[in-house]
Simulated scan of single mutants.
Amino acid sequence: MRLQKFMAKAGIASRRKSEKIILDERVMVNDKIIKELGFKINPDKDIIKVDNKIIYIEEEKIYILLNKPVNYITSVSDQFDRKTVMDLLPDIQQRVYPVGRLDYDTSGLLLLTNDGDLTYKMTHPSHEVEKVYLAEVKGIPSEDQLNNFRNGLSIEDYVTSKAKINIIEKNNTKSLLEITIHEGKNRQVRKMCEKINHPVLKLKRIKFGIIDLNGLKEGNYRRLTKTELTYLKKSHKEDKKI
């Protein structure tokens, strides 16, 4: 990329004005003053300075909602060459990363972005947002088991916060539960269902705060709306009493 084009993309000035800045010997590439207007740089490797300050091209922020199928790893790559969620985003040119994770055998709502600040905020333990799951489980939980689930369960080295759980459908051998939690520990929903002796057969996340799949087909994705993005960027901690 020509140096003046890079400067313009970095918001320093128009290309014409950037050329004047170069001629005024105010631009350095890898600590060497550049006077040549046609000088080409590698944006990924070279360090460009204007008035001794490093400049960058700010990457366009992108926010993706994916309906993840099972048998996909929530990762950018996998050492065992399994399919990853990135394989479902062939048209996305920017390098994006999952916000949190969904297990290999769990489907549903997954957010991906290249906004590192937002990712940090959303995955920080202090950030509480309701996550809703549909869980097909073995057997039919009793009312006592449902109440134990709602009031918190002792799992490994922690006690889960209060949760919501309701039976949506049931038959002789299994039932479909709607479960709402606002934590995000590893395989938490599965462990909670196991704790009340009704192991998960299938699990799907259908909602994250105000964001839901809303007809998005499995394996497909869309960009977040302005309303959804504003919701995610709220700086205060959600105080959910469930």
Rank of each mutant, 00 (worst) to 15 (best):
M1G: 15
R2V: 11
R2D: 08
Q4K: 12
F6E: 11
F6P: 13
M7F: 09
M7C: 13
A8H: 02
K9C: 02
A10K: 08
G11L: 09
A13S: 15
R16F: 05
K17P: 02
K17G: 00
E19R: 12
I21C: 04
L23A: 07
R26G: 04
V27M: 09
V27C: 10
V29G: 04
V29W: 02
N30C: 05
N30A: 07
K32T: 13
I33Y: 15
I33V: 15
I33W: 06
G38H: 08
G38P: 03
F39H: 14
K40N: 11
I41Y: 02
N42P: 03
P43R: 08
D44P: 00
I47L: 14
D51R: 12
I54K: 15
E58S: 08
E58C: 00
E58M: 01
E59T: 06
E59Q: 12
E60T: 07
E60G: 00
K61N: 01
I62N: 01
I62A: 01
I62H: 01
Y63N: 05
Y63W: 07
Y63Q: 02
N67K: 06
N71H: 14
Y72E: 11
T74C: 15
T74A: 14
T74W: 11
S77Y: 01
D78T: 12
D81T: 02
D81G: 07
T84S: 08
V85Y: 05
M86F: 09
D87M: 09
L88T: 04
L89E: 07
D91S: 14
I92L: 07
Q93L: 10
Q94V: 11
P98G: 10
R101N: 10
G108N: 06
N114M: 03
D115F: 07
D117K: 12
K121Y: 11
K121L: 09
K121D: 13
M122R: 06
T123P: 04
H124K: 06
H124P: 14
H127R: 15
V129M: 10
E130G: 12
V132W: 06
L134V: 06
L134R: 12
V137W: 04
G139A: 03
I140E: 07
I140Y: 14
P141L: 11
S142I: 08
E143D: 15
N147R: 13
R150H: 03
G152A: 02
L153F: 04
S154M: 03
E156R: 05
E156C: 01
D157V: 01
V159L: 09
N166R: 02
I167C: 00
I168N: 00
K170Q: 14
K170R: 13
N172K: 13
N172V: 03
T173R: 10
K174F: 02
I181N: 00
G184D: 01
K185H: 04
K185N: 03
Q188K: 01
V189M: 03
R190P: 00
K191T: 01
K191Q: 10
K191V: 01
M192P: 09
C193L: 12
C193F: 03
E194I: 00
I196C: 10
P199R: 09
L203P: 05
K204T: 15
R205L: 10
F208P: 01
I210H: 05
I211Y: 05
L213H: 02
N214L: 00
L216F: 11
K217M: 08
N220H: 14
N220K: 15
K226F: 09
K226R: 12
T227L: 14
L229D: 13
L232A: 10
L232N: 11
L232T: 14
H236Y: 14
K237I: 04
I242N: 12
